[in-house]
Amino acid sequence: MAVAARPPRRLINRIAGRHPVGVAFAAPYMIFLVVIYAYPIILAIYMSFHDYFFAAPGAHVDRPFIGLDNYITAFEDPAFRRALFNVVVFLVINVPLTVGLALVLASALNTALPFRTFFRASYYLPYVTASVALIGVWLWLFNSDGLVNAIIGEAGPDPTWLVNRFWAMPIIALFATWKQLGFYVLVYLAALQNVPQELYDAAAVDGAGKLRSFQHVTVPGVRSATTLVIILATIVGANFFTEPYLLTGGGGPNGASISPVLLMYQEGIEQNKPGYAAAIGVILAIGVVVVSLVNRFLLERD
């Protein structure tokens, strides 16, 4: 303790704190955060205000400042509007299903249960598995000759699920809900550990059944977790790419399931308009922050 209790005397301690070596230990991580997060964010904003494009290596090119042009182009672009609409469709399906199912499942898995490990593993497995692998199975399931149509027969839509303008997005949203649900179950399981048992006991004394104690104890007790789940689901919903790229064959049919990130890939990298793609990224990031703040305000007031 003698060392720890010694007051900082040397200049280096006054500058860098009691353990200056901590600066050195944290420096590689800090450099990583600056290079991989802070700098690219600034670069994204810079690019979004310029007519940025890829030129041959070494070529000296002029990339003029164009103000808000990229942003104006985005909002006038039907593909971008469709992508935003698809994010809304995605969230409208995904968020209520995720919050509802994850909370109910977490509550169920938090009770004394036979085979709890099995149940928990089943619901968690899609989360740890690669999207590309799972999409391979969904392609087979929802193919025109696939098992889903084999089961429901003539009742299936025409054109079939993944090439149907109406059904492409709901299938993507369902896939993402199934894939991610296990993670959110865990978030709620963690939150449930903090709901005092006394509240359940008190509710039971007052004659509340399971349903009422779920409604009046569990739901309010995990409200901050609900905020987190909604915010994380919003971030995922603004970011989906692999599903429209692979499951619906590049945002098909005919752009009906385009996502913002897929559009960024097509415009920024395939069409050589990275400035425009960066602007889409900035709009989305701002959108996610605004939606998160609004959610938080709505869910956590009072």
Partner: peptide
């Protein structure tokens, strides 16, 4: 900074990181 990066959406970083 460590906590903030947990919620930075990748779509904001994708194009500049590619560049």
């Amino acid at each position: 900074a460590m906590l903030i990066v947990l919620i930075v959406p990748f779509q904001l970083l994708m194009i500049p990181l590619y560049v």
